[in-house]
Design a protein around this nucleic acid. Structure first.
Lengths: 182, 182
DNA sequence: CAACAGCGTTCAGTATTTACAACACTTCGA
DNA sequence: TCGAAGTGTTGTAAATACTGAACGCTGTTG
């Protein structure tokens, strides 16, 4: 990815001149000029300052890097799902062949007694899902929910969370999380 | 966001020493040390080199900046899902109350004859799903697939695609797409 | 045709980052 | 207990990025 080219594209899209952007960002116009011409590789701190004048986050700026490559398998039969089970919980991942997966899409089964563990899970991203069969207990932060067939959820994965099946029937869940940490 | 702290966290997570990472990245160990101590703000090019030794993209590195704000509804009963049906296809979205949804998680029903339309769909992102009941035809690019209960799929949404139920039973699908374009 | 205000580029000097080579500290095995 | 090999840190010199003040150019206004 060409940093200078990208910065220039963004700046022009916003209808800003180098001097205008420089003033908003608190750097000099020559800095902008040299970055755009790729005659320097800016420091993180100065690129931050520059983007602050737009404004735009680092993530957005670099998101163009996500240029996917070429074809892979599209359809997976039930037995082709990759098994990433953890303990008693059965988890099957859709899209194993995918190069850089953005979504972790899982078919999960919690047999009676299954539990993601006493230490709560915490990670980046967001997750969502729907319960197809059985009942399941979901703890998010300080709240505890009882999910029944047909119920769904959506929360930030940064909140501590835990799934548990204290009932006597297996629970079946389809879930999706992003980014995919597998 | 603290660049040094984040780099150190990632490095340790990967079980690498400063020297080990430096060697893989093609920089010196002192560079890593100083970046982690925030005694310098590395240039884009050198941070790229460092992340190349992990390996990790700039986007992933800065993705931690995506710190979401505060609580909303977490669990949704079946009747609380928001209905975004299009034509004959019933689509219900999980997480309507969520501020900035990263995932569009849908419970879809394609009655016999239902179709997303003759002009193929094309948009950014990736999508995935699993068929729970019935049969469904999926066209992606030049390929046509027949999905049966239990089958799943994963593809780039940039490829032209179409879902269709030419059979005489309804098909039920759970799908996830990112980014969420709703 | 000036005079002016805007544009992006360039140059010299200063500030910052980086490599290289040391350092002190810990762990492991002879 | 004494190297040997690992860890992260630090000082100095070289490389690179940044500022501030020019420059040449274009379009506008009197």
């Amino acid at each position: 990815m060409d940093v200078g080219e990208r910065l220039q594209a963004i700046r022009k899209l916003k209808g800003l001149s180098q001097r205008e952007l420089a003033k908003r960002a608190g750097v000099t116009n020559s800095t902008i000029s040299m970055i755009e011409k790729n005659s320097v590789s800016p420091s993180i701190s100065s690129l931050r300052k520059v983007l602050g004048g737009i404004p735009m986050s680092m993530v957005e700026f670099f998101s163009e890097e996500l240029q996917q490559e070429n074809p892979t398998q599209i359809v997976y039969k039930a037995h082709e799902l990759i098994d990433i089970s953890d303990g008693a919980v059965t988890m099957k991942l859709v899209g194993k062949a995918h190069p850089s997966r953005a979504i972790a899409f899982l078919n999960e089964i919690y047999p009676p007694g299954a539990d993601t563990g006493e230490e709560m899970l915490t990670h980046d991203g967001e997750e969502t899902g729907i319960l197809l069969e059985g009942k399941l207990e979901l703890v998010v932060g300080l709240e505890t929910f009882i999910l029944e067939a047909g119920d769904s959820y959506y929360f930030e994965s940064t909140k501590p969370h835990r799934f548990r099946n204290p009932y006597d029937e297996p629970a079946r869940l389809i879930s999706a999380a992003t980014p995919a940490n597998f």
